[in-house]
Design a protein around this nucleic acid. Sequence first.
DNA 1: ACCTGAACACCGTTCAAGT
DNA 2: ACCTGAACACCGTTCAAGT
Lengths: 256, 256
Amino acid sequence: MREPMTTAGAGDPPPESGPGTRPGSAAWWLAREQEPARPRRRRSLTLEAILDASMTLLDTRGAAALTMRNLAEALGCTQASLYRHVRNRDELVTLLVDRALGVASAAPPEGTDWAGKAAWSARLFRAHLLRHPGVASLLRGTERLGPNSLAGMEYALGLFVGAGLSPRLAAAAASSLATFVIGSVRFNLGLDASDSEESRHRRLLYRSRDATALPLLVRHADVLAEVGSDDEFEVGLTALLTGFRVLIEQEGGARD
Amino acid sequence: MREPMTTAGAGDPPPESGPGTRPGSAAWWLAREQEPARPRRRRSLTLEAILDASMTLLDTRGAAALTMRNLAEALGCTQASLYRHVRNRDELVTLLVDRALGVASAAPPEGTDWAGKAAWSARLFRAHLLRHPGVASLLRGTERLGPNSLAGMEYALGLFVGAGLSPRLAAAAASSLATFVIGSVRFNLGLDASDSEESRHRRLLYRSRDATALPLLVRHADVLAEVGSDDEFEVGLTALLTGFRVLIEQEGGARD
DNA sequence: ACCTGAACACCGTTCAAGT
DNA sequence: ACCTGAACACCGTTCAAGT
């Protein structure tokens, strides 16, 4: 019933690896490792060096500063040289972001159940993104199939499959959890109620709304103005994991 | 114990409405409605017209085509004229996105409980974003405090507070739900496994991984390659709502 | 075979000069 | 008081010309 594990079906046409494939697509990630890594001549400029420089540019000067010009300047080469290692800025960003995601590797504490481990990893992931807001602002989903993202996916799959979910549901759970973590960072970048000035202004804003149209917002303005991304994250994370637990109990040992 | 409903505290300093406020912040949204709407002279070009043109540009030619030049051309004015109504492109995007969010208004079917209504609204919201991918790609969180977003927030607050959550938890729940819906659209834009070519390539990609490093990914490649954003969304949505329900049961009638 | 300078076709934004 | 043309300082990307 099961296919042989590591062999691709002989009849499957390979992905068209032409330059038309979109960065981030499965075909693109596949095609990229089939290139012969051409060691024609010792290269002075390498993709690794470009990605390193991109990362420091991103961390020190923000996402807006990650331009081909700034990159070339930092590396002491011309812009055109960059296009020898990367077809696009899009490609660069896709590679860079996946690379910057190599952290979920830190092992969670032993002795906790799957939910505890998932919560721990999610918090670690979020903390990492908060420390690197430039990376967070570049996350687009195109990194989903990169090596580091796949490793994270494998880890989460292990957690959820081990807990009793079918592979299909485990994958959906893992991916919805990742979506939530990333979203809760991205959509609060630089505009969080944890900033006391922002919180104060939100109170003013809520209070001054039309109380007949937005009664709850007006009535609870003081409380609502202080609900920030930390609360959003913790409440959502707990709810998701609780929901997964209920789903597991419902499923029993069902196959899917 | 409770503050008077519509009156802002007299001692609260007003937001500094100077041009330094960042688009999307509470201070910015506040300052923007305090401007006298200057009817000095009948204006030929209005903000409304700019936003209308932006929206059609976005829907017909995509987010990349939403430039000040294209906008000016579509409106038959110069680029400089646009800056008379909008300080920034950022400002334009913030206003545009909130405006494009005026849909959660469609009333969910009667006779269902809070969770049914929340699920219905979330699916409606997602469907709207899928129909307008340009809008989805511009969502950044800066629209969070705009009039349409606040209306959506009020609606969700009503649902969750009515179900028994404290205002604080209700706000966190509402906002984490919104984050999830938006994220599940944004991070799958144009790269979904529901595309059969993409799904086929994902199968090839998963199968060809190192089976000792990524055993689950390799073993369940066929199933995993077909898990797309629809599955992610439905599983995550159900889990979130289930989690909220459990939270409500735990809280009982507690205040927060 | 490799790298470069210089250009091309765009951006967002500003401002002196017009009416 | 309002609007404009034209510029400024940037982008990503390409390519003929060098070595």
